Amino acid sequence: EKTLKIVADSEEEAEALAKELAEKYNLEVTIERNPEEEGKYVITIKIKP
């Protein structure tokens, strides 16, 4: 299993990107607040072998 993390500037941007990735590529995608940067969100994508 591989994990890729993407940082987005807004929750709306994160949700839109996560939804597109999940639907288009059938990936497991989660969104959470970035504890290191206020106002940023981390999109985590898990790629199963």
Rank of each mutant, 00 (worst) to 15 (best):
A16L: 08
V7A: 11
K5T: 15
E23W: 07
I31A: 01
T44A: 03
E38S: 10
E23A: 10
E12T: 09
L27W: 13
E1K: 02
E28A: 08
I31D: 00
R33D: 06
N26E: 05
P35Y: 11
I45T: 02
V29G: 02
K48L: 13
P49N: 12
E28I: 05
A18Y: 12
I31F: 04
A8R: 09
T3I: 13
L4V: 14
P49M: 08
V29H: 02
A16K: 11
I6P: 01
E12H: 08
I43S: 00
K46A: 06
T30N: 05
Y25P: 05
K2W: 15
N34G: 10
N34Q: 07
E36L: 09
V29I: 11
Y25A: 03
L21P: 00
E12F: 07
R33T: 10
D9R: 04
K48H: 13
Y25M: 04
V42G: 01
I6M: 07
K46W: 14
T30V: 05
I6Q: 02
E13L: 10
N26C: 10
K24V: 12
T30L: 07
L17H: 01
Y25N: 04
E12L: 06
K48N: 13
Y25L: 03
V29R: 00
K48P: 14
E32Y: 03
K40W: 03
I47D: 03
E1W: 06
E1A: 03
E15G: 06
E11R: 11
N34A: 10
I47G: 04
E37G: 11
E11Y: 13
L21D: 00
N26K: 10
K46T: 14
A14H: 00
E28R: 05
L21W: 04
K19P: 00
V42D: 05
T3D: 14
A16C: 09
E1P: 04
P35V: 10
Y25E: 06
N34E: 08
A8W: 02
K24F: 12
P49T: 11
E23P: 02
E11L: 13
A8Q: 03
I43F: 02
E38W: 08
E37H: 12
L21S: 01
K19M: 06
I6Y: 13
L21A: 04
I31H: 01
E32N: 07
L27D: 09
E28H: 10
A16Y: 11
I45Y: 07
K2I: 15
I47N: 03
K48S: 11
E12K: 08
K19Q: 10
I31W: 03
E37Q: 08
E23N: 11
K40C: 06
D9V: 05
Y41K: 01
K24C: 15
E1N: 06
N26Q: 12
A14C: 02
L27A: 15
V29F: 13
N34R: 07
E1F: 04
K19T: 07
V7K: 07
I6F: 15
P49K: 02
A16H: 07
I45H: 01
E38N: 11
L27S: 15
L4I: 15
Y41W: 14
G39R: 04
A16G: 07
I45W: 07
I45D: 00
E15T: 10
P35L: 12
A18F: 10
I43C: 03
K19E: 03
E1L: 06
E23Q: 11
K46I: 14
R33Y: 06
K40E: 04
K46Y: 15
S10I: 01
A22Y: 13
N26V: 03
K5Y: 15
E20L: 14
E12G: 08
V29P: 11
K48D: 12
A14F: 01
E32M: 05
T3A: 04
P35D: 08
N26H: 09
A22K: 14
N26P: 03
K40R: 07
A8L: 10
V42K: 01
A22R: 14
V42A: 02
L27M: 11
V42W: 06
N34C: 14
Y25G: 08
A14R: 01
D9I: 03
E20I: 14
S10L: 01
E13Y: 09
S10H: 02
L27I: 09
K2T: 15
E15M: 13
K48A: 12
